[in-house]
Design a protein around this nucleic acid. Structure first.
Length: 405
RNA sequence: GCUGGAAUCGUCUAGUGGCAAUGACAAGAGACUGUAAAUCUCUCGGCUUCGGCCUUCGUAGGUUCGAGUCCUACUUCCAGCA
């Protein structure tokens, strides 16, 4: 069972530590979206330097390229990507259901590769096998998203997600217990009698290498709660997921912060408090992180910070700005004076504006460093405020400034 | 100097007499939430009571119901020949 220590609780809100084979995650924590085993525009070194604790990759993308077996051959996701810290994988469900030609039945999903049109199929079992081969610390159950906001569609998707969850759990346990997946040639830290360490403590700041390799007995499964916008369905889904032998929970199918507080109140009151909860895909808006943490979520992931960075939309404490706007042409102040990221400490808005207008690669790098740092640090501060008993104050102060006007 | 050719909205560019006029870039703005996203959308002569009105295709004339498109002259540029 995945070890999760709760340090402080206040209502549904909590701070804790998830102990993974690749190191600890202090929660609440923003997990970087590394869909194709890379955080776009950033090196893993840059991710570590900006304070990221964990990354989340996507099974769908990694199956298409370079293939789950190749990542297994490389020693697993952490080793392959040189992240050497805690890792998650998403099941691939979300991506597959957003493809144009998907055929979904009880067995799984048939779809075409968006790269070369190959006809592929993914089932709960094959997603589990792929995730075990990829070897992240924490896996998501293969779930189905509703094809519309319609209640019947939501309900159908939820029930199928539940049936698939049973198959995911069974396959996960089989893979764990039968040792179907083995990683010969690599020794786990545990096997060498060394404490696995998080990251950043190697002589070169990159953390240990081979000895950091994951141990095949230690991969964990999160069930995914569905139910859409209907809180009675959410409650039903939470109850179902809570009854299963899983290590934690993903909360999926959330698209806007609006109404999220009530939904999370429903779900997280039902989910067992001793297991961690990941809010899937939310974190574009700071309010997502505050509401998510306030109502009991421990980890978050979102592609928006890096995507928006690449498109020139940058976070500041006073809201997002589009650095490409003409008004920044000769603004020689830092992007965000209160920020201590590499971008804000060394460069100014006029320079960033120039890099974007001339389409320099560095524009996207610096912007991604800043945006990722912003959400990571904001979540870290949420954690500190929970530990220090000042969450309500911090939330009010932060949000009133960010969303003023 | 002669002979050809060319001048279109910031730039390049399309344009058989019915055009406020093509496309690209640039410019201006917006979007982005488990990443088919270094992507996508909108605006881009002026005014507008949104029906239109006005001014535009080097300059000045002309032919024509109608000219960016045809004719004349001029100006500038390019190529070749002197």
């Amino acid at each position: 069972m995945l070890k999760f220590d709760l340090e402080k609780k206040n209502g549904l809100m909590r701070a804790g530590v998830i102990h993974t084979p690749h190191g600890d995650i202090k929660t609440p924590c923003f997990v970087g979206a590394a869909t194709r085993a890379t955080v776009k525009a950033l090196t893993m070194r840059q991710m570590r330097d900006l304070g990221s604790q964990a990354i989340l990759a996507n099974t769908y993308h990694l199956i298409l390229a370079p293939g789950a077996d190749l990542i297994k051959e490389a020693g697993g996701l952490a080793e392959f990507s040189s992240w050497h810290g805690p890792t998650f994988t998403d099941s691939g469900g979300f991506q597959i259901f957003s493809l144009p030609d998907v055929k979904i039945d009880e067995n799984g999903a048939k779809f075409k590769s968006h790269i070369n049109g190959d006809k592929l199929e993914m089932t709960p079992e094959s997603s589990m096998r792929a995730q075990w081969a990829i070897g992240a610390d924490i896996h998501m159950a293969f779930d189905q998203l509703a094809k519309s906001e319609n209640r019947q569609d939501m309900e159908d998707a939820m029930h199928r997600t539940h049936r698939w969850l049973d198959r995911c759990v069974a396959e996960h346990q089989r893979l764990r217990d039968d040792g179907d997946v083995s990683f010969e040639g690599f020794r786990s830290a545990a096997a060498r009698g060394e404490a696995p360490s998080a990251h950043g403590d190697g002589p070169d700041g990159r953390g240990p290498r081979k000895e950091c390799c994951h141990h095949h007995m230690e991969q964990y499964l999160y069930a995914v709660v569905q139910g859409g916008t209907f809180n009675d369905l959410r409650a039903e889904s939470a109850k179902y997921c809570a009854s299963k032998d899983v290590d934690g929970f993903g909360i999926g199918g959330v698209f806007v912060a609006d109404g999220m507080d009530e939904m999370l109140k429903t779900v997280n009151s039902i989910l067992p408090e001793e297991k961690p909860r990941h809010l899937l895909g939310m974190g574009q808006e700071p309010i997502d992180l505050f509401i998510g943490a306030e109502y009991g979520c421990d980890t978050f992931d979102c592609v928006a910070p890096t995507r928006m960075a690449r498109n020139g939309s940058l976070y500041t404490l006073d809201g997002r700005i589009n650095i490409k706007n003409a008004k920044f042409r000769n603004d020689f102040t830092p992007l965000m004076p209160e920020c201590d990221c590499e971008c804000c400490k060394n460069y100014n808005r006029a320079y960033l504006h120039h890099l974007f207008k001339t389409d320099e690669i560095t524009a996207k790098v610096l912007a991604s460093i800043h945006n990722e740092h912003f959400v990571v640090k904001t979540t870290d501060k949420i954690r500190e405020s929970i530990l220090g008993g000042t969450f309500a104050e911090y939330k009010k102060q932060f949000l009133s400034r960010y969303y003023k006007k």
